[in-house]
């Protein structure tokens, strides 16, 4: 680590933090993936987590996932809240017996000295109604600040996760703010350079936060979104049906679980946008969540009939 140039130091550079975590988890045998190319509310939605958690096959992956929470937009005016931020996601299936130690060592890798920082695992059970998923775990605290979520997946898409997968999610901006000692997300040093070569988080994302906040709360075309929701829902169902093994075929595997799941992700994000626009009433809200969950469950069932889900011909 000492050989790293200063601008790669995770305590000085946002991208240095990402690269350090990637390198660390790569050394633990993880596949380092790139973000999924769709809008989603959290890294958990990435098929590398949701779908790969299901089925008997071992799986280890780590990736950054840009996460969109339309309702959290603050027009770039709140130093702690964003409608688009980065999560660093790690999934280990089955969870190794030393997964907690691995996590603690990842903190050490990014420069958190456990001899002076107070690291704590505080009860926090996780549940995603839209994904039909739950697990037990903790919020991981560093000096009173939540820096990660740690979950042992018990169920995803309504199916038992067996073997159990361990999921780690680092809130990168918050972690970086602590490491860099800045009070506003927008002041984060993104590239670790100084002077006129320095690029801040604000340089990269402030304009986007302002524009998307306008979009999310005021201008997003709700009629189109309602239509997109229905379309995504219908497409998901269609692909699931089309992908079913053909009668008479000697291959009983499902053929289109992944494309169908993309539509589930889309429906979920469109719902979040509609929710931010305030056009979904309290009672309707529940029914939309249920509709997305039904899609997620059907996709999970289809995935379990694919090779990735452990099915054989």
């Amino acid at each position: 680590m000492t050989s790293e140039p200063a601008h790669m130091n995770p305590a000085r550079s946002f991208q240095g933090l990402i690269l350090t975590l990637q390198r660390y988890w790569a050394e633990q045998g993880c596949v380092i993936m790139q973000p999924y190319d769709m809008e989603m509310g959290a890294g958990t939605f990435h098929p590398a987590t949701t779908l790969r958690a299901l089925g008997p096959k071992p799986w280890r992956a780590a990736y950054v996932q840009p996460s969109r929470r339309p309702k959290d937009g603050r027009y770039g005016e709140n130093p702690n809240r964003l409608q688009h931020y980065y999560q660093f996601q790690v999934i280990l299936k089955p969870n190794p017996p030393n997964i907690q130690d691995l996590y603690v060592k990842s903190l050490e890798a990014i420069g958190i000295d456990t001899g002076i920082h107070d690291i704590r695992f505080v009860e926090d059970d996780w549940e995603s109604p839209t994904l039909g998923a739950w697990g037990l775990g903790w919020e991981c605290w560093c000096d009173g600040m939540e820096v990660s979520q740690f979950t042992y997946f018990q169920q995803v898409a309504g199916f038992e996760v067996a073997p159990v997968a361990g999921e780690l999610t680092y809130g990168l901006e918050r972690l970086a703010m602590y490491l860099q000692g800045v009070e506003s997300i927008y002041d984060l040093n993104f590239n670790g350079l100084e002077g006129d070569k320095k690029v801040t988080y604000g340089d990269v994302f402030l304009q986007a936060e302002q524009e998307y906040s306008r979009h999310n709360f005021e201008y997003a075309d709700t009629e189109m979104l309602f239509r997109h929701f229905r379309d995504a829902e219908a497409a998901c169902r269609k692909y699931l049906e089309d992908g079913e093994p053909k009668p008479g075929s000697n291959d009983s595997r499902h053929l289109m679980a992944l494309p169908a799941y993309d539509q589930c992700i889309k429906a979920s994000h469109v719902f979040n946008l509609l929710d931010a626009r305030g056009v979904i009433s309290v009672t309707e809200r529940q029914s939309y969540i249920l509709r997305v969950r039904e899609l997620a469950k059907a996709c999970g069932a289809a995935w379990l009939k694919t090779e990735g889900g452990g099915a054989s011909a």
């Binding site: 089955p94 969870n95 190794p96 697990g135 037990l136 042992y152 018990q154 067996a162 073997p163 159990v164």
Partner: peptide, 20 residues
């Protein structure tokens, strides 16, 4: 509330503990 964990969690009757 209890949970299964690790490679053994696939076995029927696997241990459920509050955390591993």
């Amino acid at each position: 509330k209890s949970m299964r964990s690790g490679a053994a969690s696939t076995e029927p009757g696997a241990l459920r503990w509050v955390r591993p």
